[in-house]
Write a protein that binds this DNA or RNA. Structure first.
Lengths: 205, 205
DNA sequence: GCGTGTGAAACAATTCACAGCG
DNA sequence: CGCTGTGAATTGTTTCACACGC
């Protein structure tokens, strides 16, 4: 199947499947049915079968899916079997938390550098990194082949910094700043906004 | 319109509209058309008009929407015009970042308490809070009328703690732990998973 | 028998396009 | 004339239900 005809909602569910397969493997499961996996992930079994069918036939009729095999296939599809170089812009509390978040490295996302525009923060160590000045942004992206940027800065600066990241070669941005980034179509953007999540929930309360 | 017939995707977009209206107001805009707001938010103008129509008629034909009026209506709908009491479980790097994140208070989400199961962390100050032991969870929820819980703990503990939160009266959970929580239907859950967001992006790279 | 993979059917969301009103 | 609000049309997503193969 070609990239362009897999719906984006499907791509967003694939990581959930991968995560559950990982958990199942850790618990010693060798085989899993779509029904069992569905229960684990919180979706319907038909949805899992349909989603996976976009990429091939991974199961065995009457049996289910081999956990290790399906996991390796999902890792290949999501490209989590190769190393990615990531940088963070913003050395505040969020930047700290992200750098200390071990799950990134566990999933092959290596935090290569952290930047901040505040001269008082430049030079400070955070985890295994040292805060660099914004002037070194482009060089670092190109020298270390950074493909992904994380924006952990206030909204005011985010569009400008995002433009710079893209200009220097970054192709995906995880945006923690509360605004809609306008970027070229071929740049992937994911947006995390805890306040928006809260507001959606309080609607129902 | 009744709650139950407004699609969930619409509810998830409402906070984006509110945020942009806030920005527009800060920039001095008095009136905004669906086209202009759409540009700001990154959706189509028809979608904005359709979404808003679920809740009433807020615009003026030939003119657009009064920024302040629409904003106040969205705040009412999302219930961001009332104070909410929030607690955090997990006093790690993420817990620190969340406590220091001023946007919560700005939007009427007051962090009332932080808990951790690690005795070494109990008693430590974080921002304006002091880390409490898990044994005080239920009492605090009930005494301070906490409606929302944030899980900033490892996946292993998350289901157990979520069950406890719900048992003690919490009605919405913002879940940072990488697993699917199984909870009663009337409990709202939002899930934030940076790794899943990354994995969806690297699919396309 | 069991559970996948998949067309067909049902359902949901988005876009279109325009009547209607200020 | 400009822009909202909204049915109708389109497009997209999920569920159903069953043929097929282990």
């Amino acid at each position: 199947m070609r990239t362009s005809d897999v719906p984006e909602v499907v791509i967003q569910r694939m990581p959930l499947y991968l995560r559950s397969l990982n958990d199942l493997a850790a618990r010693g499961a060798k085989v899993v049915s779509s029904t069992a996996l569905a229960h684990e992930v919180g979706v319907s079994s038909a949805q899992i079968r349909k989603d996976l069918s976009h990429f091939g036939e991974f199961g065995k009729q009457g049996l289910g899916y081999e956990v290790d095999y399906l996991r390796s296939q999902l890792e290949r599809i999501l490209q989590t079997d190769t190393q990615w170089h990531v940088l963070i812009v913003g050395a505040g509390a969020l930047g700290h938390a992200l750098i200390n978040y071990r799950a990134f490295e566990h999933w092959n996302y290596y935090l290569s550098a952290v930047f901040d525009s505040d001269p008082a923060k430049v030079g400070q160590p955070i985890g295994h990194l040292t805060v660099q000045p914004m002037s070194e942004l482009c060089n670092t992206i190109q020298e270390r082949h950074v493909e992904i940027g994380i924006l952990a800065i206030p909204a005011e600066a985010a569009q400008t910094v995002a433009d710079e990241l893209v200009h220097c070669g970054v192709r995906a941005i995880l945006n923690y700043a509360p605004l809609h980034l306008v970027l070229p179509e071929d740049i992937r953007v994911s947006h995390i906004d805890p306040v928006a999540s809260m507001q959606s929930m309080t609607y129902y309360l």
